[in-house]
Structures are given as C-alpha cells and as structure tokens.
Amino acid sequence: MTQARLMDGTALARRTVEETARKAADLTERTGTAPCLATVLVGEDPASVTYVRMKQNRCRKAGIESRHVALPAATTTAELVGVLRELSADSGVHGILLQHPVGDHVDERAAFEAIAPEKDVDGVTFASFATMSFGLPGFVSCTPGGIVRLLDEYGVDPSGKRAVVVGRSAILGKPVGMLLLARDATVTYCHSRTRDLSAAVREADIVVAAVGRPRLIRGQDIKPGAVVVDAGYNPGNVGDVDFDSAVERASLITPVPGGVGPMTIATLLEQTVEAAARQLGV
C-alpha cells in the first residue's frame, strides 16, 4: 500500500485566515469598528504564554484587534469570573478566549460559564455545546471545527462511515464526536479506560485521536485506507498516533505539527469576525 497523503492544516489555515482578513476589513470599513478578541491568561505558563502570543500575532495579520488581560497565577475563581463578566459586558469586545489550563485552584467550568455565549468564539460554554449538538446557530469548539474543515477540504464525507474518537474532553473529544454525528457518521467514543482499544480502532473508517497520550494509536491498529486525524500534542512535537507506522496504512493523515493545530487558530479568528458581525448587526 502507498503511503497516506498528508492533510495539510497549515495551507488550509493560511487560506482561511486570508479570507477572514478580507471579511474583517469589509466589516471595519462598513461599521467603523474592527473585530476585537480579548485573551485572558492566568499565570505565566511558558506554553500558554507562547500560544497566546501566537494568537495575538495572527489577529494582527487578520485585521482583528487583540486585547490581552494577564492575571497573576494566584487569581481566584471569583476574580477570574469577574474579569470575564466585565469583558462580556464590554461592547468593544466581540470575542473572548480564556487560555486554559487555568490552574487547579480555579474552577475552570465556572470561569467558562462567565463568558457570554455570543462572545464564546472558542466554543467552551454549555450554551455553545448545546447549540452545536442541536445544529443551531452558535460557535463550535475551535479544534473540532477545524477538524471538520480539514475533512471537507480533503473530500472526506463522514456519512455512513464508522468514526472512532479516542478522547472525551469537553472541548475536543465530545464535541468532535457530535459534529461527526451531525454529518451522519456512526460515532464510537473511546478513552484511556476503554477495554481493548485496539479492537475499536481497527473498525474505524475515521480515527480522531485526542486523548493526550503520545503514540497511543499504533499503525497496526489502523484499518487500511482509514482517515487518521491526530489532535494530540505532546512534548517533543509528538501526537497521539504513531505517525511512522500509521502513515503506511492510512489513506489520509494529519501531521504533528502542521495538521490540526493551525486550523484551531484559524477557526478562532473566523468565529471572532462572525461574532463581531452579529453583534454589530451586519
């Protein structure tokens, strides 16, 4: 069997951001107001600091204003909730991103729920999950949304296919399964406690790995010709899939890095401009 084709998230993200920049410029010209994304960071985790800085740079390239709120690591849940409610009430802010994780002493769910649904461009609130699950207007979780865009770009129709999602997080595993279900896939959720995970993966036409365990999914467990989406990112630029062996059996596969990651940020920017347009009534 020939090696799998790579699903190039970097190239698709570049085109998505270019289109988003055109929409942002048009919105700014028509309303006199540029879309604005507020990022909130608790503490100084190096990876989070780098990620937020990357998002700010991408915002500038897309014609989106970026407002950054840096909070000390000792910030309490009540203090963080207060900041997020203030941003939610600020008409000059159209989208809000709370960089996570926020620290074990903070109730992350309470913080997420302080974000107004119309500004939840990262798709992390109960309201966003509900609207996404019911196919109603709202904002999808950015990584799952980026994954579906990648599948569309490479002509992968989930309808009638068996999709196995390895991972059950509230902002990745669970929502990507719901998005695939909405496309008429038959979805199986697996996780770190699934018995005989290999057997479940071997049945999959589409595998989404999002469990946060390096090289958990091995090539020998990939059904020949399956589509493999690796949403994991572990130290050393290693995904949740053993790429070298999986590429020999899959038909399409995302690299790490350069696959899912760029589409996450592109989706965030796209949804920020969409949120601004809704709030500005255009």
Rank of each mutant, 00 (worst) to 15 (best):
A62M: 09
A62K: 03
A62F: 13
G63W: 01
G63Q: 01
G63N: 01
G63I: 00
I64H: 07
I64G: 11
I64Y: 08
E65S: 10
S66F: 07
S66R: 09
S66G: 07
S66M: 12
R67L: 13
R67G: 00
R67Y: 07
H68E: 14
H68W: 14
H68S: 13
H68P: 01
V69D: 08
A70P: 13
A70L: 10
A70M: 12
P72D: 10
A73W: 05
A73L: 07
A73D: 15
A74K: 06
A74C: 05
T75P: 02
T75S: 13
T75E: 05
T75C: 05
T76G: 07
T76W: 03
T77I: 10
A78K: 14
A78W: 04
E79R: 10
E79P: 06
E79N: 04
E79W: 05
L80I: 08
L80C: 07
V81W: 09
G82R: 10
G82N: 12
G82H: 07
V83I: 13
V83M: 01
L84A: 10
L87W: 02
L87I: 14
S88E: 04
A89M: 12
A89D: 15
D90R: 00
G92P: 11
V93L: 01
H94T: 09
H94V: 12
H94G: 02
H94C: 00
